[in-house]
C-alpha cells in the first residue's frame, strides 16, 4: 500500500491553542448534559460544523474530535449523509444514534490529525447564543496538550496576558522506545506566568498546560534543530527508452 507521509508532523513550527494544528490538542469538560454544536473555523471562516451530545447515560469518558477528519469528510458526507433530507427542517442535524456522546464527567478533546491546521472551535447549545467554549480563549480547567518533536528551543507565551517562557527539547535515544510511557510535563498557565517558566522535555514527550484563568497558549520554534545528517537524495533509475525512430536532425 502506498503510504502518504504526514509531513506536518515534522514541519510544524507553531503550536497555538487558538489555531490548532497537528501534535496539539485542547481539552474541555462539558458538565451540562445537552446537545452541543461545534463550529470549526480557520481564522474567521467557518469550515465545518458538527455536533456531539453530553449525556448522563453515556459511559464514555473521552471523546476525541478530529477537526481535520471532519473537514475532509465534509464533501462526501453531503451525499452519504443519513441525516434528514435536504430542504427539511432538520437537514444537517445528525441523527441521535450517530451522534457521538460523552459523559458529563468525561472530556472532549479537539485535535488535528493532519493538514495545515490553524483551526479553532466554538461550542454552544441551542439554549444560549453565547458559546460555552471557545478554543481561542481557554478558561479555567481547560487543558492544552502537545508533543514537540524537533530537538531545539521554543518560546511559549500566553497571548491573553504577559506569561512568557521557554521550552528546550532534547532527543535522548534511550527514550525512543517508550515515548508514550514518558510522564508528561505539567505546566500551569495563568495570564501572568507559566509555572514552571522553563521546561525541558524529550522529543515526543507530552507537555500539558493547565489553564488557571484565561489563556491562548502559543509555542513557537525559535531555532532550527541541529541537522548533523544531510538529507538523502533518492536515486531513481530511469528505464532505457527506445531510440527515436524516423529522420534525425
Amino acid at each position: 500500500m502506498q503510504a502518504v507521509l504526514n509531513r506536518e508532523v515534522f514541519s510544524t513550527r507553531l503550536f497555538d491553542s487558538g489555531a490548532l494544528g497537528v501534535l496539539a490538542s485542547v481539552i474541555h469538560q462539558f458538565a451540562e448534559p445537552a446537545i452541543y454544536g461545534v463550529v470549526v473555523r480557520r481564522g474567521d471562516i467557518v469550515v465545518h460544523t458538527l455536533s456531539f451530545e453530553v449525556s448522563a447515560a453515556s459511559q464514555n469518558l473521552q471523546l476525541d474530535i478530529d477537526l481535520a477528519t471532519s473537514i475532509r469528510d465534509r464533501a462526501g458526507r453531503e451525499e452519504s449523509c443519513t441525516c434528514a433530507p435536504a430542504g427539511t427542517e432538520k437537514h444537517g442535524v445528525m441523527p441521535r444514534e450517530m451522534r457521538p456522546t460523552v459523559s458529563p464527567k468525561g472530556y472532549v478533546l479537539f485535535y488535528v490529525s493532519r493538514g495545515e491546521g490553524g483551526l479553532s472551535v466554538q461550542v454552544g447549545t441551542n439554549r444560549s447564543n453565547q458559546p460555552v467554549f471557545d478554543s481561542t480563549t481557554l478558561g479555567k480547567g481547560d487543558l492544552f496538550a502537545l508533543s514537540l518533536l524537533a530537538p531545539t528551543k521554543y518560546s511559549m507565551e500566553n497571548r491573553l496576558g504577559r506569561a512568557r517562557g521557554m521550552i528546550e527539547v532534547s532527543m535522548p535515544e534511550a527514550a525512543f522506545q517508550s515515548l508514550a510511557d514518558l510522564e508528561p510535563i505539567a505546566v500551569e498557565a495563568t495570564r501572568d506566568a507559566f509555572a514552571p517558566p522553563d521546561v525541558k522535555a524529550s522529543s515526543g514527550q507530552g507537555i500539558v498546560f493547565r489553564v488557571v484563568d484565561a489563556a491562548r497558549i502559543v509555542i513557537e520554534q525559535t531555532q532550527d534543530p541541529p541537522d548533523d545528517e544531510p538529507r538523502r537524495r533518492r536515486r531513481i533509475v530511469v528505464p532505457k527508452r527506445p531510440a527515436p525512430s524516423g529522420p534525425h536532425r
Binding site: Q2, V4, S25, Y107, S113, A145, S147
Partner: peptide, 29 residues
C-alpha cells in the same frame, strides 16, 4: 506513531489520553 501519552493520570489509570498521530497514512512498504 507519536503521542498517546496520558494527559490526566489518576490512581485508577489514565483518565484522558492524547491521540496517537502516525507519521504515515498506512504501513509503508
Amino acid at each position: 506513531c507519536v503521542g498517546g501519552f496520558c494527559i490526566i493520570p489518576t490512581p485508577f489509570g489514565c483518565a484522558l489520553r492524547a491521540p496517537k498521530l502516525c507519521v504515515f497514512s498506512a504501513n509503508p512498504d
